[in-house]
């Protein structure tokens, strides 16, 4: 799949933002006044910034309101509805903390639950795709949720929680990569089933429909060299998971914590780039691009 920057920025930042808002909602930390304002501002900048970035890849962003109508069937529509609901509820809850020094616990828990729903629906947009075997697993929502929770805990300054959650996220990440590498072959979809010519013999793509490229090749057939993908995985893993944990172990307060956050965001962005770039869409089979 084409690793569109807008979608990488969206899933990375929004995941982090909604993770932070989740922990604020649970009341594990209850800042008030200006401290609360700072926490909520960071959460909203990340969550809303990500959502705005996601509209950049739309052909007609001015019609985006229509995307709230099909929540009965579409995970993308559900995500939009959940995001708006979570942002409204958390704004009310945040107002209580910032302006009235009040923690409205019920509202907080409702907002926290909605934040989880947002990340889950985002993950399901990918996990539902039968056409991309690498994504079609319960590990995808598990991974995105755990990264969101761990990153949120990191931003919320919950050191112990981060030291528990980030290693769990790292383990799911490894499992997701390992499962993903054989997913296309295991899916049973190949050029023989794609063309129905397997009964005669071994089909081979002889000539593409056009000499030039097209939307399908640009959008769905992105090939990453195995060597580069291994290197990037190592970078993503070290920055996203290992360094933040090590940095949190050091004394240094806000400076090491800020470094940990920067490392984490950089690592998760790399991991998210791979999430798209390595994903093999079965339409590539028709173009002979998936013979492994």
């Amino acid at each position: 799949m084409h690793p569109a920057p807008s979608v990488i920025v969206f899933t990375t930042l929004s995941g982090l933002g909604f993770g932070l808002l989740f922990w604020l909602g649970t009341g594990i930390t209850t800042p008030t006044g200006w401290t609360a304002f700072a926490f909520f501002a960071i959460g909203y900048i990340l969550a809303v910034g990500g959502l705005i970035a996601s509209t950049f890849h739309l052909g007609h962003p001015e019609r985006a309101l229509k995307a709230f109508t099909q929540w009965r069937t579409s995970w993308l529509s559900r995500e939009g509805c959940a995001a708006v609901a979570a942002l409204i509820i958390m704004a009310l809850y945040g107002a209580g903390l910032v302006f009235f020094d009040q923690r409205w616990a019920a509202l907080g828990w409702l907002g926290a639950a909605l934040c989880l729903v947002v990340t889950f629906t985002t993950a399901m947009i990918y996990a539902q795709m039968k056409t991309v075997p690498r994504w079609r697993t319960w590990l995808t929502p598990a991974l995105l949720l755990m990264i969101s929770l761990a990153g949120g805990a990191l931003l919320a300054g919950q050191v112990t929680l981060t030291l528990v959650l980030l290693p769990i996220a790292a383990l799911i990440q490894i499992a997701w990569w390992m499962r993903g590498d054989g997913a296309l072959v295991r899916s049973g979809t190949n050029l023989a089933t794609a063309t129905g010519l397997g009964d005669i013999g071994d089909p081979r793509a002889f000539e593409p429909p056009h000499t030039g490229t097209n939307y399908l090749l640009r959008e769905f057939v992105h090939v990453v060299g195995r060597r580069h993908s291994r290197k990037l995985r190592a970078i993503a893993f070290v920055f996203g998971y290992v360094l933040p944990v090590l940095l949190l172990g050091l004394p240094g307060g806000h400076i090491t914590a800020a470094l940990a956050v920067i490392c984490h965001v950089a690592g998760i962005s790399a991991s998210r780039w791979l999430f798209f770039a390595e994903a093999e869409h079965v339409v590539g089979l028709y173009y002979g691009k998936r013979s492994a």
């Binding site: 890849h57 052909g59 056409t131 991309v132 959008e219 028709y286």
Partner: peptide, 26 residues
């Protein structure tokens, strides 16, 4: 009604849908 998000083309295994680069609709 199409916002040009491209998700339907992702969901199609056959490559039957193409986003028009000029109009931004599927």
């Amino acid at each position: 009604d199409c916002i040009g998000c491209g998700l339907c083309a992702w969901a199609c295994p056959y490559g039957a849908r193409e986003m028009d680069a000029e109009e931004g609709v599927m």
